[in-house]
Each structure stands twice: as C-alpha cells, then as structure tokens.
Amino acid sequence: MTPFGMFHTAISLVAVIAGVAALVRYKEIATATSAGRLYFWGTVASCVTGLFIFHHGGFGVPHVLAITTLVVLAVAYVAEKHATFGHLSRYVAVVGYSLTLFFHMIPGLTETGARVPVGHPLFTGPEDPTLRAVVGVCFLVFLVGAWLQIMRIRAGRPLVASP
C-alpha cells in the first residue's frame, strides 16, 4: 500500500469510527454533533482522496461509489441544514448519512478482505461470493438501522446534540 493509500485508509477509518460513535451515542448521524461533523468531513476527505487512487489503471466502480457518496452526503446535509424536503427533511438527512456509512463498508470490506490475513486473504476480490454475502448482510443491517431511525423520528424523539 502506498503512503497515499495509507493516508486515505486512516481518514476512512476515522470517519467510520465517528459515524458508528454517533449512531451509538445519538442514534443518528447529524452534523449538529461533534461525532457527526467528524464523520461528515472525514467521509468527504475519504471520497476526495479515493478519487485519486487507481488500482486497475483508470476510473472505475470505486470512483463511482465515491461520487455517489458525495452526492448523498450533499443531499443529506442540505436536508439537515435547510429543511429542503419540508417535514421529510430529517428523514432524508438521517437515512442519507446512514446510507453513506453503508457505502464505506463496500470498499472497506473489499480492500481489507483482499489483503488480510496476509498470504491467505478472506476474499479473492470484488466478485468473491463470500464478500458479496457479507456486503449483503451489511445492507440488511443498514435497512434495519434506517427503519429504527425512522421509527424514532416518527415517535418525535429529537436529536440530543452536544456542541
């Protein structure tokens, strides 16, 4: 792994840890919290640095995922800050931020699983059926988490934020 790749990975790990911390502590990711802000900006930095990594010679699926993540982040941020979607804005923000956390899992699992353990990696590559199954389980976890977050919002529970 190149030094730039290590830097990108470190940023991504910080973002994921911040996102999980926000979910555990506040039950949602929001930029009104310090963990949410760290997640947001870490994810932006992860996507931007990821756009400069070319494993197979050119623009590919990982780059599309990075751009998609940036678009979803932007929509979630606008929904959170400007209530662009009216009464649905908080739902759009919460589910959008959670979706981007799921997006982190795809390259994270793919790249880590293709390298670890050294000499006998867990996955042969992006097409490995086991990897696809693990990503599928992560998607189910996202769906359940999004549903729980939606139910929490519908119950009228506000975000309890720290500065």
Rank of each mutant, 00 (worst) to 15 (best):
G5N: 14
M6D: 14
H8C: 04
A10P: 00
I11N: 10
S12N: 10
V16N: 09
A18H: 00
G19V: 07
G19T: 13
A22M: 13
I29C: 02
A30Q: 08
A32H: 07
T33A: 01
S34T: 15
A35F: 00
A35H: 01
G36M: 01
G36F: 00
L38W: 04
F40W: 05
G42W: 04
T43M: 03
V44N: 02
A45I: 09
S46Y: 08
T49V: 06
L51F: 04
L51A: 08
F52L: 10
I53W: 08
I53Y: 07
H55M: 12
H56C: 01
G60V: 09
V61P: 03
H63T: 12
H63R: 11
L65F: 08
I67R: 11
V71A: 12
V72C: 02
V72N: 04
L73N: 03
Y77P: 00
V78G: 00
E80T: 12
H82A: 14
A83C: 03
F85T: 12
H87K: 15
R90H: 15
Y91H: 15
Y91M: 15
V92A: 07
V95W: 03
G96R: 11
Y97Q: 07
Y97L: 00
S98C: 05
L99T: 07
L101R: 14
M105D: 13
I106F: 03
I106G: 00
P107R: 12
L109M: 14
T110D: 08
E111S: 06
E111M: 06
T112I: 13
G113Y: 09
R115L: 03
P117G: 04
V118F: 08
P121T: 15
P121E: 14
L122G: 05
L122K: 13
F123W: 11
P126H: 15
P126F: 15
R132P: 00
R132Y: 13
V134H: 03
V135W: 03
V137L: 13
F139L: 05
V141I: 11
F142E: 04
G145C: 07
W147I: 12
L148T: 06
Q149S: 14
I150S: 05
I153N: 03
I153D: 03
I153H: 03
R154I: 10
R154P: 01
A155R: 13
G156E: 11
P158V: 11
L159C: 08
